[in-house]
Amino acid sequence: MALGNKTLQDLLGPITKQLDHEAVAESVELPEWEFKAQRVTDGMTHEQLVDKFQEEAEKVRTEVVRCSADGLAAAIAAIVGKGVPETGEACTVIAADDDRFAQCGLYDAIKAQELVTDLTVWDSEQGEECIQAALTATYGITYTTGGIAESATVVQPTSPKCGRAVSLLPLAHIAVVDASAIVPTMFEVMKEYEDKGEKLPSQVCFISGPSATADIELVRVEGVHGPMYVNYVIVE
């Protein structure tokens, strides 16, 4: 038998009473906001925004490379081709299943790397196997849907073709972002979702650099539960 038995009405009743409302309003209009904040990105050209994105990324220990759409496969292959960061040992890779990756020949380019011993492409039908592969993978590669210049953040929604594990479990995350999708602040990203008016993806993760903590004597340590290294690849 269930122990909990309270309803939404039980929760709302005391609030409504405390507010001296007769009942919960049918609808509430948002007021015209009086304040709108200036941001450091105000008035920047798109080129400056991309530069700002790169500059901020480097501040949070994220390496940035820029390439053309044609050069994407080569740019990523160059990163994974170095093997495990710092040690240079042989490595494994898991990547999102993305048409743009297939078209630019990324998967073949990765397999051709001497130090890459295994490549897994995310496949929801093989979810458990993919998660296991991600757990031990050196690199996880995703194509993000946008970037935020102010804080060097990439926008990573979950989808059947790109599970949450790809950008979370590997030792290093390589996040690809189109230069054209770099916007000034989080506001523009939120506004776009709002304007679409569709149900949001089950998760949209805003990622800004490597996983980090300062819980022991305030010493910054990277690579706590998520990736220890993050690379952004900007496609121009």
Partner: peptide
């Protein structure tokens, strides 16, 4: 909170895993 522009992660979650998704 910590003097950073953003934390490493900020997740916006809307419901359980979607159709065809393998984690979450």
């Amino acid at each position: 909170a910590v003097g950073a522009k953003m934390t490493a992660y900020f997740s916006l979650d809307s419901g359980p895993r979607g159709e065809g998704e393998a984690d979450g």
